[in-house]
């Protein structure tokens, strides 16, 4: 059964907030080299008790692990960006504009219970509970390059399945030409959203139907084999590896099937800089930045430089979506 009321979630499946916080606190503790060394040392001599004191409730870690299968769509031959950087260098403006803000501020995002509304041009509107989404298809490990419009990039092992699997369950009408994603917004929870930037919330993103149906378009629930941390768009987001990062909407509460191209947040901010398509394209500058090259995150400054690839290196898979289109005009 796909439609479930929040109280149908078995309590065993809900990660208690406190356990998650302990998990995050432990992770923070582990960030310090001394802490890591102490834990390693204690573990080496088998002092389980000491380890427990230094890093309590290690089982909270296991609770957030996701069961995954491998995928032929994963990107190979790239060094992964560290979990630390993936989870502490984020653009999630609802929680502040500094890259380190989301990790600090997103703790209050209420990821359970959570449901995603399916609306618009569909046979029947419905609501998916997050747990039913998690069980809809086997979760796949998919490593993708991630390219931000600010000219930095990462390599992230995401967990999810193709968005098309969900769309097939939604029975969109033939008139559904575009898919719009609406992100969670509550100004009391995301009180940073109005502070350092003037942006109209909630965050809205969109794709053409064929882009949304492309197997690379990932409905994402986790990274590094675990549930998404809040700052990465928990509990469910999309990831589009051939587009600039802002196309990959986070913390999705509604998926709307529409006839006309939906409005998208950054396009509203500056249409000349952020087009609807926003495909990674080294030949088209995005005001004010050049997109010819990028800085790989987590490397020394003399090793960061990378030449940006057309469609972020996914041209073989996605270029056919844009055949015959002038990509300078449809940026």
């Amino acid at each position: 059964m796909l439609i479930r009321k929040p109280n149908d979630i078995p309590s065993s499946e809900i990660t208690p907030r406190s356990a998650y916080e302990r998990f995050m606190a432990r992770r923070k503790f582990l960030r310090t080299a001394a802490g890591a060394a102490a834990v390693a040392g204690a573990a080496a001599v088998g002092l389980d008790g000491v380890t427990d004191i230094l890093a309590p409730r290690t089982h909270a870690h296991a609770q957030t692990k996701l069961k995954t299968v491998s995928s032929p769509l994963t990107t190979t031959g790239e060094q992964l960006t560290s979990l630390e950087d993936v989870t502490h260098y984020n653009n999630f403006y609802e929680f502040g504009i500094d890259k380190s803000d989301p990790a600090k501020n997103a703790g209050g995002l209420p990821t359970r219970p959570w449901s995603v509304k399916i609306t618009g041009k569909v046979k029947a509107e419905k609501t998916f509970d997050i747990d039913s989404l998690l069980k809809l298809r086997p979760l796949e490990d998919r490593v993708y390059r991630h390219r931000c419009v600010e000219a930095w990039s990462m390599v992230i092992p995401w967990v999810g399945y193709s968005l098309s699997e969900l769309i097939n369950q939604c029975d969109p009408l033939p008139s559904a030409k575009y898919v719009q994603f609406i992100s969670y917004y509550d100004r009391h929870v995301e009180k940073w959203s109005g502070q350092d930037a003037t942006i109209f919330w909630p965050y809205s993103e969109g794709l053409r139907m064929d882009e949304a149906m492309h197997p690379l378009t990932l409905l994402t629930f986790g990274l590094y084999g675990e549930m998404l941390p809040n700052q990465n768009g928990a509990p469910v987001r999309v990831v589009l590896p051939w587009k600039y990062g802002y196309k990959s909407a986070k913390s999705i509460v509604e998926i709307r099937f529409v006839e006309k191209q939906p409005h998208t947040t950054w396009n509203d901010q500056a249409p000349s800089a952020y087009g609807f398509y926003s495909n990674v394209n080294p030949d088209v500058d995005t005001v004010p930045w050049s997109q010819k090259s990028e800085r790989r995150i987590g490397l020394p400054f003399w090793q960061q430089h990378r030449t940006t690839l057309m469609f972020n290196g996914y041209g073989d898979q996605v270029a056919s979506l844009y055949k015959g289109m002038d990509l300078r005009k449809y940026y």
Partner: peptide
């Protein structure tokens, strides 16, 4: 920070 390798995730941007 450069010597101790603590310039952060994006050292170029930090500098």
């Amino acid at each position: 920070e450069a010597v101790t390798n603590t310039l952060g995730p994006d050292p170029t941007a930090n500098i």
